[in-house]
Design a protein around this nucleic acid. Sequence first.
DNA 1: TTCAGTAGTTCAAGATTATCGAACTATTGA
DNA 2: TCAATAGTTCGATAATCTTGAACTACTGAA
Lengths: 108, 108
Amino acid sequence: MQRPFVHPAVEDVTLESVLYALADPTRLEIVKTLATGGCALNCSKAAPADLPKSTQSHHFQVLREAGLIRSERRGTEVVNSLRCAELDKRFPGVIASILKASDKSKKR
Amino acid sequence: MQRPFVHPAVEDVTLESVLYALADPTRLEIVKTLATGGCALNCSKAAPADLPKSTQSHHFQVLREAGLIRSERRGTEVVNSLRCAELDKRFPGVIASILKASDKSKKR
DNA sequence: TTCAGTAGTTCAAGATTATCGAACTATTGA
DNA sequence: TCAATAGTTCGATAATCTTGAACTACTGAA
């Protein structure tokens, strides 16, 4: 049996950790993919394909511990999903406005 | 004459740099102070008093280059103000929702 | 049940970035 | 002209990120 994932309770999620998690371009990309992808995706599909696995793993850990995503093991894979509803209740509009803005910000 | 401050044009501001700037607790604090302080404040008043000056200076530079604040020299001081309106036009709701959420997120 | 393959994790080290004291610059007011 | 004030720059140490290599867990053959 593998060590289970720990997810913070919504009320323990801090704005700071959320912003920190989203401030990294790779992680923002992952979150965008999860948001548009409809629902749950496994790690390899949600992360840029060229990113080393160890780095991917690290980013998913940051996102998970920040409270942005929920991860569940499905056999050998890990399926991730955005905690949209919960987060919007805690920080109304934050994630939504960021996701909306992220489409616009394609330069550089 | 001192080197003038460079501020990015609104359209050059990236969401990523904005989130990066706000992800730091000290900088978020500064932005909150500028937001609630009504209008312009000089550096020493907008930053936590116990923070070393060199670190303050660095944080203001990050905020400025991210496009979050506008800095102007007034004699020996530097007066900073939030670029609220411009930013809200570029990334609607982002700054506002973050500022609103930041009051809630007092734990830890 | 053993074994190969797949998906992800952990570890350690090199690369990057942040912090902060010390020295410096610009401006003001005596 | 000079001292005081407000910030900036520089350099070194500290903290963090990235990544290859080795490892673990699960699955589906054979």
